[in-house]
C-alpha cells in the first residue's frame, strides 16, 4: 500500500448544543449520513450530525471501482472527500460518542447519548451496519489472537503467514486482495456453492496464485490456545471434514444493521433492518432512514448516497409541513 498521511478532521464544524431544538438530527456519518448532511445544510436546516466515528464502513474498504466519477479510489480517500464536502456547511458534529438511543417525545425527538440529550423536530437514521459474527467455537476466545474482522487493519500482521477468509461476498474478496501482498497462502471458504463477489476481484485473487477456494463448506471450529493454530472445515454436501493448519482467520460473513438506535420505535423486518417507503419514510412521522440500516435490498455506497439525499429532502418537506 502506498504511504499516506491522514490529517485530523476537526477544523470548521461547530460543537453540538443540548439547549437548542435542531431541525434535524442525523445519526451516522457513512455515505448516507454525510450525503443527508449536505442536502439538509443546503436547505438551511439547523442540523446536528451524531456519529461514533466519521466515515462508516467505507473507511474499511481498500479500493472502490464502482462509485461514479472515480475509476478507482480508496475508501479512506472517498470518505475524506465526503467529509470535505460537509465541512463547507455550518452543521454541528458530535463524534466519538458511545451508543445513543432515539426517543419520541411530544412534538419532538430526543437522542439520548448517555449523560447528554439532544433534541430535534425530525431525525434521519443512517447508522449503517457492522460485521456479523460467525458464531463458532474459538471465535470469541481467539479474537485479537488471529481472529479478526478488519482486514485493512490487520493484514500487515500476517506477512508470510497462512490465513483463511470466511465468506464469499465482496467484503471477503476485498479482504483477500488486502492480504495478497502479505500472506503466503490464502484459503477462501464459503458456505455457498459459488462466490457472490464481483468477477473483477476474483480475477485479481486467482492471478495471485496464493488462493485456494473451498466452496459448499463451513468452518465448524477455530482451534488454538494462545493464538489461532488451525480450523476445522466441513463440506456441507459430503460431510467430509478437513483440518487446516493456519495463523489467521478473517471473518467476512456479512453485516448486521445498527438499528438498536431506534429499537422498539420503528417497524423493522426480520433481519432488524428499518422498513422505509420509497421516500425514506419510516413507520413514525418525522423519522426517516437511509443507507445500509434500511431494508433497501442492495447495500452499495452509491445507493446509500442516493437514499441519504432522498431522506434529507423528505425531512425538509416534513419540516415545511409542520412549520
Amino acid at each position: 500500500m502506498d504511504i499516506f498521511f491522514e490529517v485530523p478532521k476537526d477544523v470548521k464544524i461547530t460543537s453540538p448544543s443540548t439547549d437548542k431544538l435542531y431541525d434535524v438530527i442525523i445519526a451516522g456519518s457513512g455515505p448516507a449520513g454525510m450525503t443527508a448532511s449536505v442536502y439538509c445544510s443546503r436547505k438551511k436546516l439547523d442540523t446536528l450530525l451524531i456519529t461514533k466515528d466519521v466515515g462508516g464502513q467505507v473507511v474499511w474498504t481498500s479500493g472502490i471501482e464502482n462509485y461514479m466519477g472515480y475509476q478507482y479510489i480508496t475508501g479512506r480517500d472517498l470518505s475524506e472527500k465526503f467529509y470535505q464536502q460537509i465541512e463547507q456547511f455550518p452543521i454541528s458534529l458530535l463524534k466519538d460518542v458511545g451508543p445513543c438511543h432515539l426517543e419520541k417525545l411530544e412534538n419532538k425527538f430526543a437522542v439520548n447519548c448517555g449523560e447528554k440529550k439532544y433534541y430535534s423536530k425530525s431525525v434521519i437514521v443512517a447508522t449503517g451496519k457492522r460485521n456479523r459474527e460467525l458464531g463458532v467455537n474459538g471465535e470469541k476466545e481467539l479474537l485479537g489472537r488471529g481472529v479478526t474482522y478488519c482486514s485493512v487493519c490487520d493484514a500487515p500482521l500476517f506477512k508470510d503467514k497462512i490465513v483463511a477468509i470466511i465468506g464469499g461476498g465482496n467484503s471477503a474478496l476485498t479482504a483477500a486482495i488486502d492480504l495478497i501482498s502479505y500472506a503466503s497462502k490464502i484459503f477462501i471458504i464459503n458456505i455457498l456453492d459459488n462466490l457472490q463477489g464481483d468477477e473483477v476481484f476474483l480475477d485479481k485473487i486467482k492471478n495471485s496464485n496464493k488462493a485456494e477456494i473451498i466452496l459448499s463448506s463451513e468452518v465448524s471450529k477455530i482451534k488454538g490456545t494462545e493464538k489461532v493454530e488451525g480450523i476445522t472445515v466441513k463440506n456441507r454436501k459430503t460431510s467430509q471434514i478437513r483440518e487446516i493448519e493456519l495463523d489467521g482467520v478473517f471473518i467476512e460473513v456479512g453485516l448486521m444493521p445498527n438499528s438498536e438506535f431506534a429499537n422498539n420505535l420503528l417497524n423493522m423486518n426480520d433481519q432488524k433492518e428499518i422498513v422505509v417507503d420509497c421516500n425514506c419514510k419510516t413507520s413514525i412521522d418525522g423519522i426517516f432512514a437511509c443507507g445500509d440500516v434500511t431494508a433497501v435490498l442492495d447495500k452499495q455506497i452509491i445507493i446509500a448516497c442516493g437514499e441519504g439525499a432522498k431522506a434529507a429532502l423528505s425531512a425538509y418537506r416534513y419540516l415545511l409541513g409542520i412549520k
Partner: peptide
C-alpha cells in the same frame, strides 16, 4: 498499530 488501522489513533 498498523498504519492502515483507522481505530488505532484513538
Amino acid at each position: 498499530v498498523t498504519l492502515t488501522c483507522p481505530y488505532c489513533p484513538t
